[in-house]
Amino acid sequence: MNPIAAIGRLSLDIFGEIGRMTTFAVEGALAAVTPPFYWRPFLQSLARIGYASLPVVGLTAIFTGGALALNIYEGSIFPDANAFIPQILGVSIVRELGPVLASLMVAGRCSSAMAAEIGAMRVTQQIDAMSTLSVNPFRYLVGPRILATTIAMPILVLIADIIGVYGGYLVSVYLLDMSAPIYINALIDFISHDDVTSGLIKATVFGFLIAVTGCYYGYRSGGGATGVGNATRTAVVAAAVLIFAANYALTSLFVDF
């Protein structure tokens, strides 16, 4: 095999996939914000993606906050290390760990579910059936999911931020003997409005990416159960990679500004 041809084919495949997904994302965004709106599937998606993800996001946040507090305390070279805990923990949770970890958990839960559900609908001709019933399946299936995930994600991350910081509070106050008022005051003094906003902007972008990848791979799946399985796996991996890449890009942007 000619290695140059192989590289060329691979490059074309990669750029082709990026192009298709970008087109899908733009069309999906338009379907989410232009009529006709399908309120029932939107509210169902909001409940499934937002409300049902609360336990897993909350647990992830509380344990991450607790572990982070311990690490800051144990890793510090200063004798009064616990004084730094609220500041470092607060900024880490609100800017990075809250949005990224919550989004990864939601990607695992929801991106896979979207790919599997839409993929199964594709292979059982339910999407074809929708077209024959005068309903645009893209608008009915993709638009509400993108809108719901994009709205739900910042709310989930805000809750994850609060729970994560509370996890750090529990460890700091009850395990490391830190004063509760000092922890709370240090947190309030150190976390800025911009820290919270940047985290929530990230969460909105991540929510959009989670829904787009789940819907994209589900909508394009074929080849029976194997095809749906592949779509599900690829959706989760793609969502995770895109979250990390977008996190870096957005962090660079926020640091510059």
Binding site: Y38, Q44, E117, A120, M121, T124, Q125, Q126, D128, A129, M130, L133, S134, V135, Y140
Partner: peptide, 23 residues
């Protein structure tokens, strides 16, 4: 459709009325 292609997530009446409800 050959395999009926009914929407799993909806009740039977919602399937029958799908075009009326959403179309």
């Amino acid at each position: 459709f050959q395999g009926s292609a009914l929407f799993d997530s909806l009740t039977v009446w919602e399937n029958v009325a799908f075009r009326l409800l959403y179309g």
